[in-house]
Design a protein around this nucleic acid. Structure first.
Lengths: 347, 347
DNA sequence: GTTAGCACTCTGTAACCTTGAGTGCTAAAT
DNA sequence: ATTTAGCACTCAAGGTTACAGAGTGCTAAC
């Protein structure tokens, strides 16, 4: 479809634009070493490329700018897997050098370093707790009528909630309930717990404990885990540095979306396959992200779960570099998070 | 020092500027109902006010704008305690209508509502966990060589950390240690725990447990609580709506500071007395906040602790309204957070 | 097929003018 | 002795014009 020369020119145009954020003209192209043709020849080719929809003019006599279709083609066919600086690589690995045991901590650090290395905004979706299995349930009384319920899962995740109960319930009864809960619920996933509480546990509690229904209700209510997992961000403000967001209105739209976190779940939800996924501009189907691209890396975690790493930047993004960084980091993260589980990571 | 008329004019100038963000001229002032003098008279008074440093011109023939000294005077002497809309008040109270038991939740909601009602950025410093006292310590083994340590405090706060230990340590020993820790440490504040672990507990463990030092070290290391308490934000992006931040450079400076949270602790740290404190512009001693005012409300929580609520806005802030809102919310928050403690709130 | 040359187009910038809001001062009015 | 009216002056903002620079498209020559 495209001649070699057209491929070359398209690539140089996009590379140049990504670097400079300025429309690229035929003359400046023909001056480059890679391109041995006169500006007139380049102009002809550019005209063709425009006709095919890969590049656009911002006005009748301006240089050309990549279109979304152009970026798409660039990402799919022209991406030269750019070598990262050794420094960047070791900086990523350094996160995992210390032996850290908190998932949140690891994930937060990953988000931070990613945003620092790219100057874009990073978004990390940690492992899903829904499928964690209950390891132990405990209740710690705090004062008369209130107590803290704690659930520890097999991944080491701790959920705790304060709850109150009628005063005529005795410490004895609470202990009895905790014993029953542990006997019956250990091994259940958090997701299924609510169901089992009401179906299976309710019947047993009924036999042993007066006022069991109040206790059960209090306990069940507090123990529904939030629907969404927590998102971790790095460099939320990095978009301020991008010239495409010097327009404060665009900025506000985007920041609003980031702040509300609403659409983000849909966008970042791990896709079917593992690996890298690139969404360019309107492909994201969110108005605020018209000028943005989102690169998502999905990686496996032990237990069949998946994690996601994403970089949000302008469509004029350093695709090659970002993809390399995401690839490395997602591999590291996959290992690190998996090691926090009982089971070894699936590959 | 100032005549009644000068007071009146100063007040009207500042009120008007807070509303419109536009320099105020003599003619538009003399047209107001409150002011019965001709523009020439007003001009003379304004000239005096400028000489005294309460107002400034942005250029030789512009209207006047309040200076920091002007705002200071306004806040100290001219603030008419503006009545809030009933709607606003009930919206604040509504946070506390449901009986919520999670401190974080309450605090986060407060931050959110405050930012929504004011259109500024809110910052809430939750209660300090350092002075919480240990209620119970537990250790839940996760896999061979790793376990979760959980500390529940008298306020219902739960700290948990994953830690690893040498494999030759038996489950027995761990249980023994947990029993000792509970016997000795319940009632100790988190702040003092580290010390007591090494001084008092070490000696006891030595007698009962082989390899006690490794265990102790693992446990002590993970249990230092972060130096700073968590800050909660609302409306981080609200500054985008303020005309004083249409300059993207100023915006970046400010956002950077907010994102890094660095200076904020100093600024928001509860002051000696309870009550409201207003810091205007350069009084904050942070470059990024030259154009900002920070209003902080410090309120007591049970157990002699203090919490802080703050609003960060442009110097051109609705001082009166913000102060009213903070007063109400801090009272509510004081009660609500105190009720989560054993002891009744100190007044 | 490639290139040189030229007319044409559009942006951005600087220079200029005009308008409107505001000031300060002076002299008249109260 | 205040207060006000009047007037000259200043400055920012907005509009117009002119112009340089970068770029294109087309045609004709290589």
């Amino acid at each position: 479809m495209l001649t070699d020369r057209q491929l070359l020119i398209l690539q140089v145009i996009i590379d140049d634009f990504i670097r400079s954020a300025q429309p690229v003209g035929s003359r400046s192209l023909s001056k480059k070493n890679e391109i041995q043709y006169s500006s007139a020849t380049v102009r002809n080719e550019m005209s063709d490329l425009e006709e095919m929809g890969f590049i656009e003019k911002t006005h009748t006599s301006s240089g050309r700018v990549p279109s979304e279709k152009g970026y798409r083609f660039y990402v799919d066919h022209l991406l030269s897997p750019q070598a990262l600086k050794q420094q960047d690589i070791s900086q990523i690995h350094s996160i995992f050098a210390e032996r850290i045991f908190e998932m949140e901590n690891i994930v937060q650090r990953s988000a931070k370093i990613l945003s620092e290395l790219t100057n874009y905004t990073s978004i990390v979706l940690g492992p899903n707790h829904h499928e964690n299995r209950v390891k132990q349930i405990q209740v710690v009384p705090i004062s008369e009528g209130t107590a803290i319920a704690i659930i520890v899962t097999d991944t080491g995740h701790v959920e705790s909630r304060r709850f109150s109960f009628p005063k005529d319930i005795k410490a004895d009864d609470i202990e009895k309930m905790v014993r029953i809960l542990n006997e019956r619920l250990v091994g259940t996933s958090l997701m299924d717990m609510h169901d089992r509480l009401y179906k299976e546990i309710a019947i047993i509690l009924k036999k042993h404990i007066a006022n069991y229904d109040l206790m059960l209700k209090a306990f069940a209510e507090i123990m529904n885990i939030p629907v969404h997992d927590k998102l971790f961000f790095g460099g939320k403000m990095n978009m301020l540095n991008q010239p495409e967001f010097s327009d404060i209105e665009k900025l506000r739209l985007l920041m609003d979306m980031i702040e509300r976190e609403e659409n983000l779940y849909k966008l970042i939800r791990p896709s079917d396959g593992s690996g890298i996924q690139v969404k360019i501009g309107k492909e994201n189907e969110v108005i605020a992200m018209e000028n943005c691209s989102l690169i998502t890396a999905t990686f496996p975690i032990a237990g069949g779960q998946k994690g996601s790493l994403a970089i949000l930047g302008p469509t004029r993004m350093e695709y090659s570099r970002v993809i390399s960084l995401l690839t490395i980091l997602s591999t590291d993260l996959s290992k690190a998070l998996s090691s926090l589980y009982d089971k070894p990571p699936e590959s």
